[in-house]
């Protein structure tokens, strides 16, 4: 087990490096001279050259890449923002908690509410409760999340005036962003949860549990749900990645100064250090999430744990 975890963590590092390498190369190949963009149209040739030297853009691709990889992954330093001149890492650390908070809360909602809805639909299979849940789920999967976010703002903030429409003044500000980020995931999990519950509902060991005289509610909790959770857990990692990938849009809609919004700023200004820092953060976040889910899987399913243990011996 321990060896497996170490192996997975090493894999994770490789994946993050590759992500960093790809994004760096893409940013490097982007057309337009960053120095010219920064200085504006009326800059002279000499000031541009000076700026390029200052930013380290006069070095070769390989030198720049090596420098980036060394600073980012060894010293955890992404340099200074080209446009603002402040350390990117410092800014990132300020913004990180907001994005993480929204992402993790949305994910918790996804799993809890989505699974609950799935179980609810599956246990009422064929009845109106089932159809209603699934129709609503389908609607929310189909609706684009930014549109939903805007509708939420319109309804809850402008019409009802219950929640702030933008910014981060107090905990209430996070309600709408979390909700809008979570809804699609809840719907996906509800459908996934329903189908995996239905798979389990007819399993023989459920008949066994019934034959023991166990109450139906306990059967759902003790026997059906743990077995149905496996595919849901697999989906959690991907869902988390989805929420984070959607954060630039969500954070723009709600004007939240998070990592997603920072990434957008970086892209608009061709500010390479910002973009690289944000993308590396996304890669780390997603990899860690997927790793945790895989470990969760092993923790819950003794068969998978046994496989890992067997690998250790072999």
């Amino acid at each position: 087990m321990g060896k497996y975890v170490i192996q997975r963590v090493l894999q994770m590092f490789v994946i993050i490096w590759i992500a960093g390498f790809i994004v760096f190369t893409l940013m490097y190949m982007m057309p337009g001279d960053p120095a010219k963009i920064l200085l504006g149209n009326d800059a002279t040739e000499s000031t541009i050259l000076a700026k390029r030297a200052e930013l380290g853009l006069d070095a070769s691709y390989v030198e720049q890449l090596a420098s980036f990889m060394y600073h980012a992954f060894v010293r955890f330093d992404f340099g200074y923002s080209w446009s603002y001149g402040v350390p990117v890492m410092q800014e990132l650390l300020v913004r990180l908690p907001r994005t993480l908070f929204i992402g993790v809360s949305a994910m918790v909602l996804n799993v809890l509410l989505g699974t609950w809805l799935g179980v609810f639909a599956a246990t009422h299979r064929g009845k109106w409760q089932d159809s209603l849940t699934m129709v609503i789920a389908m609607v929310f999967i189909s609706v684009p999340d930014f549109w939903l976010a805007l509708m939420c703002v319109l309804f809850f903030s402008i019409n009802l005036g219950w929640l702030p429409a933008y910014g981060i003044d107090g905990p209430l500000s996070y309600v709408l962003p979390i909700l809008s980020s979570a809804v699609a995931g809840i719907a996906i999990n509800a459908r996934q949860g329903r189908s995996s519950m239905l798979e389990v509902i007819h399993a023989d060991f459920i008949s066994t549990a019934r034959a023991k005289g166990q109450k139906e509610s306990v059967i759902v909790r003790k026997h059906m749900l743990p077995n149905a959770m496996m595919p849901i857990i697999t989906g959690v990692g991907g869902g988390l990645a989805m929420v984070v990938a959607g954060s630039p849009i969500m954070e723009s809609v709600f004007s939240i100064p998070g990592v997603g919004a920072y990434l957008l700023v970086g892209i608009n200004l061709r500010d390479r250090p910002i973009v690289l820092a944000c993308v590396v953060f996304f890669a780390v976040f997603t990899s860690v999430a997927i790793l945790l889910m895989d470990l969760c899987y092993a923790f819950l399913d003794p068969r998978i744990k046994a496989q890992y243990a067997a690998k250790k011996v072999g």
Binding site: D204, T208, A211, N227
Partner: peptide, 16 residues
């Protein structure tokens, strides 16, 4: 009343 089910491979909960 107790029952012994047909297929032992699937009659037990794999997670317990």
């Amino acid at each position: 009343i107790a029952m012994v089910f047909q297929d032992p491979m699937t009659a037990l909960n794999p997670l317990q």
